[in-house]
């Protein structure tokens, strides 16, 4: 049970090619979110969206350690998780725009993207609402006798929800293969967690005997190495784990939260120095695993893919009216 903030993993677990793939995944999420923001501000996207920019290392670092048949549950700030687990850009944008070609035929939208083919059991509009679902997926794995793992993503806001603690207690009692990943981006909506979370974050899980660790969520090398350890452990019957990944949402709570009066520009500037894409790029260049021009090329590639996906979604059809009462019941 460690409560260190700077686990130093073996950084050479992935080779340069895989690190560049991870970089591309993060860049794809970043470009997706920037495009979502643009769709919102140009009034082409209904509703709102909660951007994952700044937190990319967590989703990618963890999902790169998962198999396609492993499960994730996601949150209202879930685009990054969905993409990191393998969702396609075009169906994602189509869903954000309420189109029939979207992952949920336009019935879910930004906060409810689910894709069982990549093991994504759904993003969730209720803070902490998927803690039980991920735990149930772990129970299902145990009963079916497979070696899948379920990862439950949630933010520090979910630390206020009792369901999380009920779930972790049962996961530890029954040694379920569930990894609880707290993306501690410091704020629940507009309130800093110093005002909402008493005591120790990792201590909450440690109290149940759950393996609990706080790590640097901006450094994908740390996230990935830690994820591999706890995921392998869970896959081999070692039970659940709880990771607090310290991070920061670079944008506001949602696309419309522009002024961010609840935090200082200085604080934002400090965290911006720890941009997860930049950190990985710097390390790969410094350790001579990649030339600096490769990152520019990746950026251009993903931006082009995102642009194509946005155009696809903009041109896609809205659902017909007859769709409205379909899928109420299976």
């Amino acid at each position: 049970m460690s409560e260190t903030n700077d686990t130093k993993p073996n950084a050479t677990e992935l080779d340069a090619e895989h690190w560049l793939q991870a970089y591309e995944q993060m860049a794809k999420i970043r470009a997706f979110e920037e495009a979502a923001n643009e769709l919102y501000t140009s009034a082409r996207m209904p509703g709102i969206a909660h951007l994952y920019i700044g937190e990319e290392a967590i989703a990618v670092g963890i999902c790169e350690a998962l198999r396609q048949d492993d499960y994730i549950t996601s949150t209202h700030r879930g685009h990054g998780h969905c993409l990191a687990k393998g969702a396609a850009l075009d169906k994602m944008f189509a869903e954000l725009l309420g189109k029939e070609a979207g992952y949920c035929r336009g019935k879910g939208g930004s906060m409810h993207i689910a894709d069982q083919e990549t093991g994504n059991l759904g993003a969730n509009g209720i803070v902490g609402g998927s803690a039980g679902i991920a735990t149930g997926a772990g129970m299902s794995v145990k009963l079916r006798g497979t070696d899948q793992v379920a990862v439950c993503f949630f933010g520090d806001g979910a630390l206020g929800q009792g369901l999380l603690y009920e779930s972790m207690n049962m996961a530890q009692l029954w040694k379920l293969p569930v990894i609880y990943v707290c993306e501690n981006n410091q704020y629940g909506e507009y309130t800093h967690n110093s005002k909402t979370a008493a005591g120790s974050m990792v201590g909450r899980a440690a109290g149940f005997g759950v393996h609990a660790q706080a790590i640097d969520g901006q450094d994908i090398r740390t996230v990935h190495a830690t994820a591999r350890l706890v995921i392998d452990r869970a896959r081999n019957g070692g039970g659940p784990a709880f990771l607090v990944c310290n991070t920061y949402r670079f944008h506001g709570h949602h696309v419309g939260d522009i002024d961010r009066p609840y935090r200082t520009r200085e604080e934002e500037a400090e965290w911006a120095k720890r941009d997860p894409l930049k950190l990985l790029e710097d390390w790969l260049v410094k350790s001579k695993q990649a030339e600096s021009d490769v990152f520019e090329r990746i950026q251009q590639d993903v931006k082009s893919d995102v642009e194509n996906a946005v155009n696809y979604a903009l041109e896609a059809s809205f659902p017909s009216e007859s769709e409205v009462d379909r899928h109420v019941y299976a």
Partner: peptide, 13 residues
């Protein structure tokens, strides 16, 4: 709430 959540997750999978 926890066991209901477990039910939902197990049912989905």
């Amino acid at each position: 709430a926890g066991i209901a959540g477990i039910g939902v997750g197990a049912a989905i999978t």
